[in-house]
Simulated assay, not measured.
Amino acid sequence: MITAEEVCARIAKKLGGKADAHVLNADTAFDSVGLSSLQIADIVYSIEDDLDIEFDPSKAASVKTVGDLVRLAEETKSGSAA
């Protein structure tokens, strides 16, 4: 399973040196940290690959925060988001 901390670590990696300017936690909104839509998609796809799951595209598009993404991963992994 993926945790908020793991997602935050992926965001920090994408942000590089800019990560120190942000507080990253489950409530962090992706658009608040300056990630491009391509960087966000890359994070989402890497989580799908790591967990061997496939998000429902409409649900993935509605993800706004780190916590939303973690919840979607948990739901998808458990099969309740199918």
Results as ranks from 00 to 15, higher is better:
24 L>N: 04
5 E>R: 13
16 G>T: 11
30 F>L: 07
47 I>T: 00
14 K>M: 10
17 G>R: 08
60 A>H: 02
11 I>Y: 09
3 T>Q: 09
20 D>L: 06
62 S>E: 12
60 A>V: 08
52 D>V: 07
3 T>K: 12
63 V>T: 10
42 D>A: 14
57 P>W: 05
55 F>G: 04
67 G>P: 10
50 D>M: 04
67 G>L: 04
70 V>I: 14
54 E>H: 11
5 E>F: 03
48 E>F: 09
30 F>V: 08
7 V>D: 07
79 G>A: 08
54 E>A: 13
58 S>E: 15
68 D>A: 12
33 V>L: 06
56 D>H: 03
16 G>Y: 12
19 A>K: 09
43 I>M: 04
1 M>H: 11
6 E>P: 00
21 A>W: 05
81 A>I: 09
31 D>S: 08
42 D>C: 00
1 M>T: 14
28 T>F: 09
56 D>R: 11
42 D>F: 01
82 A>M: 11
24 L>P: 14
36 S>G: 13
48 E>G: 04
58 S>F: 12
60 A>Y: 06
22 H>G: 03
67 G>M: 02
53 I>L: 11
69 L>Q: 09
7 V>W: 05
2 I>Q: 12
72 L>G: 07
71 R>Y: 05
19 A>E: 07
10 R>N: 06
20 D>T: 02
78 S>D: 15
3 T>F: 10
35 L>H: 03
56 D>A: 15
73 A>W: 00
64 K>E: 15
56 D>M: 07
22 H>W: 12
40 I>A: 01
19 A>S: 10
81 A>Q: 15
55 F>S: 06
24 L>G: 04
29 A>R: 14
66 V>P: 06
5 E>T: 14
77 K>N: 15
22 H>I: 03
31 D>F: 03
73 A>C: 08
79 G>R: 03
18 K>V: 02
64 K>Q: 15
11 I>W: 08
35 L>W: 05
60 A>D: 04
23 V>E: 15
74 E>F: 01
4 A>T: 06
3 T>R: 10
54 E>G: 00
16 G>Q: 13
70 V>T: 13
6 E>Y: 06
36 S>C: 05
4 A>V: 05
53 I>G: 11
12 A>I: 08
28 T>K: 11
69 L>T: 09
4 A>R: 01
11 I>L: 15
69 L>G: 05
5 E>G: 12
49 D>L: 13
19 A>G: 03
10 R>Q: 13
8 C>V: 02
28 T>W: 13
20 D>A: 11
50 D>Y: 00
46 S>R: 12
21 A>T: 04
5 E>M: 08
26 A>L: 00
61 A>L: 13
67 G>Y: 04
72 L>I: 13
24 L>Y: 09
76 T>V: 03
29 A>M: 12
36 S>H: 07
28 T>Q: 09
74 E>D: 15
38 L>R: 10
50 D>R: 11
26 A>N: 00
26 A>Q: 05
23 V>K: 15
28 T>M: 10
78 S>L: 11
31 D>G: 00
64 K>F: 06
79 G>M: 09
30 F>W: 01
79 G>F: 08
3 T>D: 10
29 A>D: 02
38 L>S: 05
57 P>A: 15
76 T>C: 00
27 D>M: 05
39 Q>D: 14
77 K>V: 13
36 S>A: 04
13 K>C: 04
17 G>A: 14
39 Q>H: 02
32 S>M: 07
8 C>D: 02
34 G>I: 01
5 E>I: 07
43 I>C: 01
48 E>W: 08
